[in-house]
């Protein structure tokens, strides 16, 4: 068992999930037009939202190696952004833990954004409209109506982002290399173990990942079922 890899994986997933919730909340709120009453939007607005939604969903369909390649190039000395990062950090972002976090955020972005978009869109429009006309500003409607009613979606987003980050392989390998204790996560550790024909170790690590993923999803669904008989607004 590669304990260093386990610790690193959990740390990476935790930090990524926290960052994702901070980034995905305003992004999903904008895509779902979740502040104030549903607004009388123009076609240009609607188109802009659909473009953003499609861009956010890209990591779902792209090979992770494509994302990894561009991240690697972007973080490296070949681009001005990469050179700026190297100047600020003193080392390239690639092949470091913060580099992995950046890659994981992009790779897991749809898993955080989409449940939130669905949650925000699921708040009945008449609740937001009524709150607005009764005096609630856009921000107040978001904070006091949309957010509390979409609260379960935050749990879904967090769990999906966390488990997806735990399971990622391609992006981590591309931009992290395979540095023990720094960028070697559990999924890469399994790959290494198989390369070394150490099937027993690979088996143990894999079983651990299966158990971790299954228990998380079970907890999520069990909680969803409990919420369902209570509030009829909660999907």
């Amino acid at each position: 068992m590669d304990l260093a890899a386990l610790g690193l994986t959990l740390r990476l997933a935790f930090v990524t999930t926290l960052c994702l919730l901070v980034i995905a909340t305003p992004l999903a709120a904008w895509i779902a037009d979740a502040a104030g009453a549903p607004s009388r939007t123009t076609r240009a607005h609607i188109l802009a939202r659909r473009i953003a939604q499609a861009a956010v969903a890209l990591p779902l369909v792209l090979p992770p190696t494509v994302l990894g390649l561009y991240l690697l190039l972007g973080m490296g000395p070949a681009t001005s952004l990469g050179r700026a990062l190297i100047a600020i950090l003193g080392h390239p972002l690639a092949f470091s833990f913060p580099g992995l976090v950046v890659g994981s955020i992009l790779y897991s972005l749809p898993f955080a954004v989409q449940p939130l978009v669905l949650g925000f869109e699921g708040v009945p429009r008449e609740l937001r409209e009524t709150a607005a006309v009764l005096g609630a500003s856009r921000w107040t409607v978001f904070r006091r109506v949309t957010l509390p009613l979409a609260a379960p979606s935050f749990l879904t987003a967090a769990v999906l982002a966390f488990t997806h980050t735990v399971g990622e392989f391609g992006v981590v390998l591309m931009i992290g290399g395979d540095i023990p204790g720094v960028t070697r996560t559990l999924s890469i550790s399994i790959y290494d173990q198989v390369q070394e024909m150490n099937y027993s170790a690979a088996n143990h690590t894999s079983l651990l990942l299966i158990a971790l993923a299954f228990l998380t999803l079970l907890a999520l669904y069990a909680r969803g079922a409990r919420r369902n008989d209570g509030g009829r607004w909660i999907a």
């Binding site: 008449e126 409209e129 009524t130 709150a131 009613l149 607004w233």
Partner: peptide, 12 residues
């Protein structure tokens, strides 16, 4: 001040 057709009470 407005009262919609469906009560639209905040369920929480």
């Amino acid at each position: 001040a407005y009262a919609p057709q469906s009560p639209a009470l905040l369920p929480h």
